[in-house]
């Protein structure tokens, strides 16, 4: 890994910004550089929302994601909106509630992220952490230990165990 750009998308309230922050913090634990940014204003409330993360072994100059290497979408709306911004040869990770888009130039993973959070963990709020497990299992962006440490460092007190299991459920969704 030299330089990777990610876009985490879904609807407001799905915790994608926190997800982006956790991933960036995990990268710092690994000694990498990281930048996380997000959409602000009316765009951040309802509709499609996104968090962007850049991870790099070198200094990161341009702080925005133009074409992402990896796109996560948890809603149809966000997938439709951001699919055009995914690089050819990139990785698309979508929830299984989303229709597989017509992109034969990217690798697509269709995974039951929301279902795992809601029905297996009984907490729809942890979908973002499940998603992080899925992303990291596929891409190996950061070390497992750093990601777990970052999750525990960011989630509300008392929910560490729930969120750690969410992370591992995410890992388990990919063989």
């Amino acid at each position: 890994m030299k330089h990777k750009e990610l876009r985490l998308s879904g609807s407001g309230g799905q915790g994608l910004i926190t997800g982006g922050i956790i991933l960036a913090e995990a990268a710092l634990h690994d000694g990498l550089n990281a930048i996380q940014s997000q959409s602000y204003g009316p765009e951040a409330r309802g509709g499609a929302s996104k968090a962007e993360v850049i991870l790099s072994e070198e200094a990161i100059d341009y702080p925005k994601v133009e074409k992402s290497d990896i796109l996560l979408s948890l809603t149809q709306l966000s997938c439709d909106k951001y699919i055009g911004g995914l690089k050819s040869g990139g990785i698309l990770i979508i929830d299984e509630s989303i229709e597989t888009p017509d992109r034969d130039d990217v690798t697509i993973y269709r995974v039951p992220i929301l279902d795992t959070a809601t029905n297996k963990l009984n907490k729809s709020m942890v979908a973002n952490i499940v998603a992080l497990g899925v992303i990291n299992k596929i891409t190996n962006l950061v070390s497992k230990e750093s990601l777990e440490k970052a999750v525990i460092g960011r989630v509300p007190k008392g929910t560490e165990e729930l969120n750690t299991s969410a992370l591992y459920e995410g890992y388990n969704l990919i063989n």
């Binding site: 990281a34 930048i35 940014s37 602000y40 990161i60 702080p63």
Partner: peptide
């Protein structure tokens, strides 16, 4: 700049 004010960085 808003870009730097709002982004998170190392």
């Amino acid at each position: 700049d808003e870009v730097i004010g709002h982004m998170r960085e190392r």
